[in-house]
């Protein structure tokens, strides 16, 4: 697949019959969000907090539809009880795309602890993590994750690393000027 992982993700959603995409926005997700909004066959469900998306996905499955849930890594912290109690207890399939913060090249210390916690915390409540650091990895992991969740009955999170989406720049204007010198 070509280099644009967001476009690949959208085609894979279509191929796998994803009908709902529930998300809290993140910069790294903006491409897939845009593609989902422009697609009349996909219902986009913006959320006020990430655990709602876990429940929306369960409800979609109860009604015979597949829902992908997308969030920034910080939001993973909000989902844990909903995943443990609802998804894992009832063995709902779950497919998540998590764009990482507090990861490769991060300069905001407030993001670091949750970034480090994402994998162990998700694994602890029964979610398998597939890590992707290149566009190719991302397409492979999304394809694999969609199979594992909606056919294999698993809970899967594809973690898109900052090596792929880039680290957000944080520097004061003065510092930027200095850096530009």
């Amino acid at each position: 697949m070509s280099g644009d992982w967001s476009a690949n993700a959208h085609s894979l959603f279509k191929e796998h019959g994803i009908k709902q995409v529930a998300y809290v926005p993140d910069a790294g997700l903006s491409g897939i969000i845009k593609a989902s909004l422009a697609d009349n066959d996909i219902q986009t469900v913006p959320l006020t907090t990430e655990e709602e998306g876990i429940a929306v996905a369960a409800g979609a499955w109860l009604g015979g539809q597949k829902c992908a849930v997308m969030m920034q890594s910080s939001g993973v912290g909000n989902t844990i009880n909903m995943i443990a109690s609802l998804t894992t207890t009832c063995a709902f399939p779950l497919f998540m795309i998590v764009t990482m913060r507090g990861d490769y090249g991060e300069s905001n210390p407030w993001q670091m602890p949750m970034g480090r916690a994402v994998e162990p915390v998700l694994e602890a409540v029964g979610v398998r993590c597939l890590r992707a650091d290149t566009a190719e990895d991302a397409a492979d992991a999304i394809q694999a994750g969609l199979m594992m969740s909606f056919h294999g009955g698993e809970a899967v999170a594809v973690l898109i690393g900052q090596k792929l989406i880039g680290a957000k720049a944080f520097s004061a204007p003065a510092a930027q000027d200095a850096a530009g010198d």
């Binding site: 709602e52 998306g53 876990i54 429940a55 369960a58 409800g59 009604g63 539809q65 909903m82 609802l86």
Partner: peptide
């Protein structure tokens, strides 16, 4: 899954 009933209903309703 406290707090999840209404959003579960939403996914189902859609």
């Amino acid at each position: 899954g406290m707090g999840g009933a209404a959003p579960t209903g939403l996914g189902l309703a859609l």
